[in-house]
Each structure stands twice: as structure tokens, then as C-alpha cells.
Write a protein that binds this DNA or RNA. Structure first.
Lengths: 232, 232
DNA sequence: TCAAAAGTGTTCTTGATACACCCATGC
DNA sequence: GCATGGGTGTATCAAGAACACTTTTGA
């Protein structure tokens, strides 16, 4: 079949729900949103994303958009759903393939505290009235992330290279939306044998300093290959 | 932004991996494939699917294609992944949103034993050398179905309205790819309280006749709303 | 010496697994 | 009466949930 335009075609975009986690600031996951420069929804907040070019894969398109629009060059990406409602973009018919992205907030290039790209807490997101159907996309991304995290240790893409077990627990609590028992969590977290204790401790304030760990990527890759389950 | 063609756009299709299960014929799930009438891959076997029209959602597009190409008017559909590799279609750039579909083989309109649409067993699929990247799509669909079935009782879309516990067990064994213990399976299957025993029994051959059940959709909808887990 | 976060074990309950025999039927 | 698939119960083990106090530090 030749490349014809006998029928008009839906346009194809990608959108990214960028999650970040700051272990210092309590209070859950944060979301990276960008301010729209044009109508529709001019001045409103939206997910980074844009049209898929003819010479790039979906993954490449998201990475490019994340870099261009949000200053994010390193991210763990996972596609979770395609959104195809008829009127989701008032201008024309657009189908969007949505990804969630996990980034360490520190790794975002400048501009993210600027006027056109900013981290939002969950209540801020709720108050922000996102453009298009982006609120729905975010809701679904949260759900996918939750399911994802129950099956494999995904959260390490959100934690700094060195982290404490308390930080890790806070992250899991934020993703799962409920508190976890400290002792049970530590037992389980260590039981996988994927956390390497470091010779360092983190001290901040007048407390007992916490043991630092890093994630054993090598060992995880081996286990994942054999299809191990990581229910948390 | 007006409807411009300043950049060429990837085309958008949907494809469906149609699973069927015949409780009588032992031997796992079957897949509905259609024979291609044109190049490329003319005469080869492929998934039902096609271009998304400008005035229909993704779900509507799959349903239309399933009806037109495969004679399937009733199916449980679930979107599982979008495939966007550059050369997946040799003619032009095509991104495809893939669904898996669960149907009762009996509910397929004629023509499915005809020349251009047929049920394939798993080994037949493996031998058939599917068109495009459809083998990859099928592999991923199997995986998604397996994960899906572990979380909620999805299989009832594959079983006849009235079924025996042995049939249900066969289905789960086919989906999960391993044998299950009969007593443990029955215990668990009944423990959810979603199976309604009927006053009928099925007799076939010189055996004790089996109790028939039907699925309690109403009750399931209530439980699902409250977010109950259905790990099998 | 006090405040604040880090760290640690045990009991109980629940669900998963393993396993072997009798039952009802048609031929 | 026998072959065939239908149907049932219990004991063991592993994992999850609940739960409270001591330790280390800096101020």
C-alpha cells in the first residue's frame, strides 16, 4: 500500500508523567509539569510531550521531548497506556502514547525551578487543573506505578545513589499511598539481598546516623533474568 | 495549531491478539489469525487489525476490525502495549496499539473455519511465522494475559456461560503454563464466592457428572469497585 | 539529659503447598 | 465390575501482620 492520505489520519503524540522523589522533603512523590506557551490551555500546566516524528521510535520521541521540554536527560521510562478519546485535544484528533518516567530530581537540568517547568506536590497537582486529559493520564500513571512497584524494585530510579532504609521506606509509602511497619519493611527490603551496605553513614541533626546502602544492579539483573518475583 | 502536514506523520493502527479456549479440546489456548490477502506477507498469517479512523476511538477501531476481519462481535478487550519500532511495516512508518481479546470460540461468526480466518493452537502459531512483528506482539500479549489473570478473574470471558471447575482449572493451567493441584484450585476458586452452583450437571461419557457453575458478575463488580485482590 | 531518628525480635495469623482416596456414572 | 473423570480434608510450612523498646547522636 502506497503512502496515501485517502483518509485523514489521527496525529500521534507521546506524553510523560515524570515522577520525582526528594527524600529530604517529606510528603510524597512529586510531578514535573511544564507551562504551556500557546493555546489551548495557554499558561496552564501540562505533561511534557509532543508529536512523534516519522524517523523515531516511541521511546526516542519521549526521550527527546523530555530533554527539550523538561531538561530531563536521564530517566527510567515505561510505557503504560495509549489514550485515544476523540476530543482529548480540541484542535484535532490526537492519540497519545503515555509513559511514566522516574527521575532523581537532582539530575534535572536547570530551568526546573524556572517559570516554565516545575515540580508539583500531589495536592498542587490536584489544584492545578491540568490541560487536556492530563489529569486522567496522571491518575492512570499513578496506578501503573503502584502495580509496577509491587512486582519489582522500581523505586531505585527515584532514590539517590546512596540512600538509607528510612528514605526507601518513605518512597514506598508515597508510591503505595499507605504507611508501612518499619521493622517489617526493613526485614523484607534486606531479604532480597539486593542492598549493599556502605561504609558510610549519613548524619544530619542530633540523631543517630543512618546506615547508607546502594542498590546492587548487577545482582538484580541476574535475578530478573531468571524471573524472580519481588512482591513488596 | 491548524491541521498541517508540515511533518509526515506515522500511521496509526490497532491489532488484536484474540485468545480462545475450547474446554472440550485439551491443549491450551488458541489464537485467531487471519490470512493476508495482499503484499507484504501475502498468504501469510497475521493478527486482525487495521488503521484507526479519524472519527473513532482506539477501542472502537479494534471492535470494528474484529468484526470485519474476524467475525468477532463480542469480546473482552484490553489494551496492553503500543508498538513503535521503525521498520515494523516495510511499507511505511506504522505505530500499532495492541489489544488482547478474550472470546468464546462458539461466539465467532462463520468463516472462522474458512480459508481466511482460523484458530491456531500454540505450536501451530509457533510454526506459522507470523507477518510483521506479530510474533513479538503475541508473546507480549501472552505475558500480559498471564499477569492479568493473576490479579483478577479474567478467564470467564473465555469460558462458556456454564462451566465446570475442571474446565476452569484447565483454562488457568493453559494461561499460566503450569499444572495446578486440583484440590487447592477448587478451594481457592470457591473461596472468592463468585461462582454460583447451578442445578444442572454435565454428563458426557461414563463418568460421574460434573457440577456446573456460572460466574457472579454482579457480585464481582461490587468487589472490584472496592479494590479487592484476586491473586490465583 | 533530652529530643529525635535509627535500629532490632518474637508471636500470631493467614495463606500456600503437598498429598491419597472414595464417588457416581455408562458401558 | 471396571474404567473414567468428579469430588473431598488435613497437616505442614512460609510469609505477612502486629507490636515496643533500646541505641546513638548533637544540642
Amino acid at each position: 500500500m502506497p503512502h496515501t492520505y485517502e483518509h485523514p489520519r489521527p496525529a500521534l503524540t507521546v506524553d510523560a508523567v515524570v515522577f520525582g522523589f526528594d527524600p529530604a522533603a517529606a510528603g510524597g512523590l512529586r510531578l514535573l509539569l511544564i507551562r504551556r506557551g500557546q493555546a489551548p490551555f495557554k499558561g496552564g500546566w501540562a505533561l511534557p510531550g509532543g508529536f512523534v516524528r516519522i524517523g523515531e521510535t516511541l521511546d526516542e520521541a519521549v526521550r527527546r521531548e523530555l530533554s527539550e521540554e523538561a531538561g530531563v536527560d536521564e530517566a527510567w521510562l515505561e510505557q503504560f497506556h495509549a489514550f485515544g478519546a476523540l476530543k482529548r485535544d480540541p484542535r484535532e484528533r490526537v492519540v497519545s502514547v503515555a509513559y511514566f518516567a522516574l527521575v532523581r530530581p537532582g539530575e534535572v537540568r536547570g530551568g526546573t525551578d524556572a517559570d516554565d517547568a516545575r515540580w508539583f506536590t500531589e495536592p498542587e497537582v490536584a489544584a492545578a487543573k491540568l490541560a487536556f486529559d492530563h489529569a486522567e493520564i496522571v491518575a492512570r500513571a499513578r496506578e501503573s506505578l503502584r502495580e509496577r512497584v509491587r512486582r519489582r524494585p522500581a523505586g531505585f530510579e527515584l532514590l539517590p545513589e546512596k540512600f538509607t532504609l528510612t528514605e526507601m521506606q518513605r518512597l514506598y509509602e508515597a508510591v503505595l499511598g499507605r504507611t508501612l511497619d518499619k521493622r517489617n519493611f526493613r526485614k523484607k527490603a534486606l531479604s532480597f539481598g539486593l542492598l549493599i551496605p556502605l561504609d558510610e553513614r549519613r548524619r544530619h541533626g542530633a540523631h543517630r546516623p543512618a546506615q547508607l546502602f546502594r542498590f546492587d544492579r548487577r545482582k538484580y539483573a541476574q535475578l530478573a533474568k531468571r524471573g524472580i518475583d519481588f512482591e513488596v
